[in-house]
Write a protein that binds this DNA or RNA. Structure first.
Lengths: 336, 336
DNA sequence: TAGTTCCTTGACAGCGCTGTCATACGTGCC
DNA sequence: GGCACGTATGACAGCGCTGTCAAGGAACTA
């Protein structure tokens, strides 16, 4: 910066003022400084300025992986939004429990970011408390956290609407397949199951817990086993609502392989509207992770820039039923 | 840090030494300092230390999007690797040309990172030159850049091997479908086409440019049109090699819809081994983006830590043919 | 013309660390 | 006992910026 100042024949203060776009700089001086900066390829060191301003200009993001439709879409929307606000995006990828423990012990983001976005982590009380005194705004994405800012999709309503769609088609035996992760069920998982149950209750369909099964989506064998459990019931379902599109796609493949036509003999409904839903012409309940990323970004910027902002604000995003080719009217019951 | 020093009853210098793990600290003092730091939840400000050490402790990454199998897998592998080296990962998502122009004009990474990883950008000469005097190591991923460090997959060999597979199955009319992006063809695109052509030449199959068509993978209509062009040839192909799995999947759907059985009447081969390949039981040529991310990470750390390291090193990663269910022997030629 | 105000600019301290140098304190040796 | 040496610790400057304050000059008013 001293070099730029010298070249432009002004003081460092003036260079700083110019480069930050402050108003009190005469046009000719501004022009000289800008040119000098350009000629010297000068860029302000964020690290030096953060030292004095106390703001880092960084938004940190905590994600379990980047290798998923949801994360990819959300962060791809978040990135440009932050850049437009002249903020940097630093990402902490925490794939396993060991990394997770070390992250929460060290909290490397402390003092190195202005805010933290926590994506799709179902935090323990202790972890949440740890984040609470991180000294920066924290926004929880894809989960509800009481008293803390969060952004999530209305899983309950989405699953309720999806289930209603199946009910309207005449289905009464409707199964629900949950996605079981390494650490159990996610926030969304619970919400979607609840929505399914609500819709059934609404329609006076008796609850049958045997119709609810679970499997990890990436374990195809487990998915087939879960399906087997449903098909071997005394009164098997005529429709399956999968908590996720990948699960739905696995189910469709398994059903077709065993000669059970979809949707003629079995309707299948997914959730998410991932690209795989389009490949399989899958009826599904859509959510928009890019909207989620965008909203989370706006919220986090607001929390950073406005100390008055409500730090416990919730934003709930809508879902939409996307009927495609894998749901159809229930087959007429075989004569008993 | 002053607080920690006071609490531990030592000077700031000693705290700094302790926290950086330098050797000349007596065990009892070290213990006291560590406890004080823990009690105060103290974390060193990277920004302050970078100011004096001149190292930021961050690796910047430039990506066109995060919403793709390749980027997701690569960065999910890169992240933990950098964390293990106590480096932060900042991501610049540059989805369109306007952002791109502004990125290369401002080069926000300048002085704010220790190195830059450029993923899957086919840079102009000018852009490359701009990065050259960025003042930090730059590693090009998924592209070859003369005289600059780069990591990429052996597209030529992969496509050659894939094409050989089809030739061995007796195919002679083999089409190649390129993936056309908004800005034309990628580095990989050229390599894969070249490998295809080499294998045909090897087998003395005459080159027929009508068998090479292109479409943007996300534009299903364009893919169908490209397929139509192939099917309406005087002598249509009996096998199609798609530059990408998504393209292959779209082709399979279109073929099956028009009653052309895959693989009985038409073999289809993909490239990448994305999850969609598994869904479609697609024969393909696999590459490993997570290996790519890992190797790129190791390379970049080496360049940061060892000023002697060769800044023009290339790492070329292998591919593997994964035969599945969409390639089969060529149908016997109809009697002419 | 002198006084007042506003606008532009520069000087300087200090943000939180680290690296260098100096100091203090054992230890071992002749 | 005196000296050299090694190890542990502290004092202090300075990294590259920004915020504050003061100074200088132009413009305007009486």
């Amino acid at each position: 910066m001293a070099d730029v100042a010298e070249r432009a024949g002004v003081s460092a203060s003036t260079v700083s003022r110019t480069l930050r776009g402050l108003s009190n700089v005469s046009p000719d001086v501004r022009a000289r400084v800008e040119q000098a900066a350009r000629e010297l390829n000068f860029a302000v060191s964020r690290h030096a300025s953060s030292l004095v301003t106390g703001r880092t200009g960084v938004v940190a993001v905590l994600v379990p992986t980047l290798n998923s439709w949801f994360m990819g879409s959300a962060l791809s929307a978040l990135g440009p939004l932050l850049r437009a606000a002249d903020m940097e995006l630093t990402v902490y990828v925490i794939p396993d429990l060991a990394e997770r423990a070390s992250f929460f012990e060290q909290l490397p983001a402390r003092r190195n970011a202005d805010a933290l976005l926590v994506f799709s982590f179902d935090l323990t009380e202790e972890e949440g408390a740890r984040l609470d005194d991180l000294g920066m705004p924290v926004v929880y994405v894809s989960q509800h956290a009481d008293g803390r800012a969060s952004v999530y999709v209305d899983d309950v309503a989405g699953a309720r609407n999806g289930t209603r769609h199946l009910l309207h088609l005449g289905h009464r035996r409707i199964a629900f397949v949950q996605s079981r992760g390494a650490t159990g069920f996610s926030f969304s998982s619970y919400g979607r199951l609840l929505g399914y149950q609500q819709a059934l209750a609404e329609a006076d369909v008796p609850r049958d817990d045997a119709l609810v099964v679970a499997a990890p989506p990436e374990d195809k064998r487990a998915v087939v086993e879960a399906l087997g459990a449903l098909l071997s019931l005394r009164e098997p379902p005529t429709a399956v609502f999968a908590e996720q599109d990948e699960l739905a796609a696995s189910l469709i493949r398994a059903l077709r392989r065993s000669g059970i036509e979809v949707p003629e003999r079995m309707s299948v409904l997914g959730f998410d509207d991932q690209p795989v839903a389009d490949w399989f012409d899958l009826s599904t309940v859509s959510q928009s992770p890019s909207d989620m990323g965008r909203v989370a970004g706006e919220l986090v910027l607001e929390l950073i820039n406005d100390p008055e902002a409500d730090p416990g604000r919730h934003v709930v995003l809508p879902t939409h039923l996307i009927p495609r080719a894998t749901t159809a009217p229930a087959p007429l019951a075989d004569p008993a």
